[in-house]
Computed example of a mutant assay.
Amino acid sequence: MYEFNRNRHSVYSLNYHLVVVTKYRKKCISEEMLNRLKEIANNVFTSFKCELMEINGEEDHVHLLFKAPPQVQLSKLINNFKTVSSRY
């Protein structure tokens, strides 16, 4: 069954699947780095009022499954996540 969220003017269920790939698909993401990415993603997505449902990955890419309200600009959210995660 679907779960719907509400705000003052809308009812929504927006789920997104984001795949972030390393440059040239180099296999450089270790288990420690993936754990740190989980912490960073949780902080960034929480600050944008999004719910990070699942995060997983391999040596050359990371999958993020999240829910976001319609007010969130996805381009800014993804840009912020990529910027913050690459700097840490």
Results as ranks from 00 to 15, higher is better:
Val84Tyr: 14
His63Lys: 09
Tyr12Asp: 06
Phe48Pro: 03
Arg6Ile: 13
Tyr88Arg: 14
Ile78His: 05
Ile55Met: 05
Ser75Arg: 07
Ile78Glu: 05
Leu18Gly: 01
Ala68Arg: 05
Ile55Cys: 02
His9Cys: 08
Asn43Ile: 06
Leu74Ile: 06
Lys76Val: 05
Lys23Asn: 00
Lys49Ile: 11
Leu52Tyr: 02
Gln73Glu: 09
Leu37Cys: 03
Asn15Ala: 05
His17Thr: 03
Arg6Leu: 13
Ser75Asn: 03
Glu32Arg: 09
Lys82Gln: 14
Asn80Val: 11
Lys23Asp: 00
Asn79Glu: 12
Val21Phe: 06
Glu39Ile: 05
His17Gln: 04
Leu34Ala: 07
His61Arg: 07
Met33Ala: 13
Val62Ala: 06
Asn15Glu: 05
Lys27Trp: 04
Thr22Val: 05
Ser47Val: 00
Ser86Lys: 14
Ser86Gly: 04
Lys76Arg: 15
Asn56Lys: 10
Val20Ser: 08
Leu37Trp: 12
Lys38Tyr: 02
Leu65Ala: 06
Ser47Tyr: 01
Asn43Val: 00
Glu58Val: 12
Ala68Thr: 03
Val84Pro: 13
Ile40Arg: 06
Glu32Tyr: 09
Ser75Gln: 08
Val84Gln: 12
Gln71Asn: 14
Val19Leu: 12
Glu32Ala: 14
Val19Ile: 14
Asn7Thr: 09
Phe66Met: 03
Leu34Gln: 07
Asn7His: 11
Leu37Glu: 02
Asn79Lys: 15
Gln73Ser: 07
Asn43Gln: 11
Leu74Cys: 02
Lys23Met: 00
Met1Ile: 12
Ser85Trp: 09
Asp60Leu: 10
Lys76Tyr: 15
